[in-house]
């Protein structure tokens, strides 16, 4: 029955074919070479590479820092979005445009800038140093760089949804006696949860893969502030391609599982939305 069913919208075959071909050429085939390359290793060798203490520390750091940065971005990205959508103030369009800067700026430039101001001799670093807070060349620096990179993902996913959220549901809640906080907690937040999760997933994924900005501010001390992507580059520079791809395979698998999980939660949280 399904095979013969007529579709109202023509062109399914063509567009689906394009979709598969495109994804294959651009995404799947390049990524599959990672598996092909690491397949040359023996299982013991592979296992030893991915479970070595230095690699494990890098994984932990990469995932933790990305997670933390995405979390911070969800909170503050939401506040930025709220201000941009709900209020009219001079310079709003300018600030709106500034949100996209992390998209456009070469990440290495961002890393160098951040390292400069957060270093002991820099503006902010000089202020934080006496308080015993060391940001640059430290794990905190990695999180800061990832926050910088991830912000637009959260803002740009939440913004259209918040703009779409009608004023009348808030009015309705107010008439029914809800306080501003109750309206936010019970009406606005649930409506935005799917978008916030999507923004979180994007920022998190971006953080995992980020390399350029992080290496300039991280200090790259093995076991302490060395991220997984850097370790991959290091292995490559040692001509240890199988070792590099082994680390990449684990990164890939882990991030795919996490993104899939977040997407599932997101779908679940939007189960009652109109399609």
């Amino acid at each position: 029955m399904a095979r013969k069913r007529k579709r109202v919208m023509p062109g399914f075959g063509l567009t689906f074919g394009c979709c598969v071909l495109y994804l294959g050429l651009i995404v799947l085939i390049p990524i599959s070479t990672i598996f092909a390359s690491s397949a040359g290793m023996t299982w013991e060798n592979f296992w030893a590479t991915i479970t070595s203490r230095r690699v494990m520390a890098a994984y932990k750091l990469s995932f933790m820092a990305s997670f933390l940065a995405a979390l911070v971005n969800v909170v503050f990205g939401f506040i930025v979005t709220w201000a941009l959508v709900r209020y009219r103030f001079p310079g709003r369009k300018l600030i709106d445009a500034m949100v996209d800067l992390p998209f456009a700026l070469p990440t290495a430039v961002a890393g160098i800038c951040l390292a400069t101001i957060y270093a002991r001799t820099g503006w902010l670093g000089g202020l934080l140093e006496p308080l015993g807070i060391k940001v640059a060349y430290n794990q905190a620096g990695i999180v800061i760089a990832l926050i910088f990179i991830g912000l637009p993902f959260v803002v740009r996913t939440v913004q259209p949804v918040l703009e779409d959220l009608g004023q009348d549901v808030e009015d309705a809640a107010a008439c029914l006696g809800a306080s501003r906080w109750q309206t936010f907690r019970r009406i606005i937040l649930p409506e935005l949860t799917p978008a916030l999760l999507a923004g979180f997933a994007l920022a998190f994924a971006r953080g995992l893969g980020e390399y350029g900005s992080v290496i300039f501010i991280a200090g790259n001390i093995p076991m302490k502030s060395e991220i997984a992507p850097l370790l991959i580059i290091t292995k490559l520079e040692e001509y240890n391609t199988p070792g590099a791809t082994a680390i990449a395979v684990v990164m890939l698998a882990a991030s795919f599982i996490m993104l899939f999980a977040i997407n599932t939660i997101q779908r679940w949280s939007s189960r009652h939305m109109e399609r």
């Binding site: 009608g166 009348d168 549901v169 009015d171 309705a172 809640a173 009406i187 649930p190 409506e191 009652h272 939305m273 109109e274």
Partner: peptide
């Protein structure tokens, strides 16, 4: 009662 109902859709 609002014109477009303003029900909480979640």
């Amino acid at each position: 009662v609002f014109q477009h109902y303003a029900l909480f859709r979640h």
